[in-house]
Simulated scan of single mutants.
Amino acid sequence: MSNSQRIDDEQLRDEQLRLRRPAGIRSLQLGEVKVTYVPDGAVRLTPRGWLPATTDEVWAEHAAYLDETGHLVASAGGLLVEHGDRALLIDAGVGPLSVPAEPGNAVGAIEGGALLDSLAAIGRDPGSIEAVAFTHLHTDHLGWAYHPAPGTDGPAFTSADYLISEPEWTHRHLAKEHGTNEEILAALEPRVRTVTDGDEIFPGVHVMLTPGHTAGHAAYVITGGGRRLIAFGDALHSPVQIGHPEWAATVDHDTEQSTAFRRRLVEEMARPDTVGYGMHFADVVFGRVVHGAAGEGATWEPVDA
Rank of each mutant, 00 (worst) to 15 (best):
L116M: 05
T196Y: 04
W59N: 02
D273C: 06
L51R: 01
L66D: 04
L229V: 02
L17V: 00
G204H: 01
V266S: 09
E68Q: 13
P52M: 06
T46P: 00
A231N: 14
G127N: 04
R288K: 15
A53N: 13
N105M: 09
G154R: 15
I230M: 09
A106N: 03
V94P: 02
V289Q: 08
T55M: 12
V94T: 12
V38R: 06
H136R: 02
T214W: 09
G123K: 07
L229I: 00
G224L: 04
A294K: 01
F202R: 03
H173G: 15
H217M: 10
A186V: 00
P126D: 06
T170P: 00
A92C: 06
R264M: 15
A175E: 12
M269T: 01
G276L: 04
D125E: 14
V251R: 12
D199M: 01
T152G: 03
P203M: 00
S128L: 10
V35A: 05
V207T: 11
A294S: 07
L265I: 15
R48W: 05
A156D: 06
D254Q: 01
R6N: 10
M208I: 12
V38E: 05
L12K: 14
D252I: 05
L72K: 02
V33M: 14
L265K: 06
G292E: 02
S128T: 15
E61K: 13
A64K: 02
G226Q: 06
G84H: 14
A235P: 00
W169R: 07
T170G: 00
A231E: 10
A92I: 03
A231F: 05
A219T: 04
F286Q: 11
G216V: 04
E182Q: 15
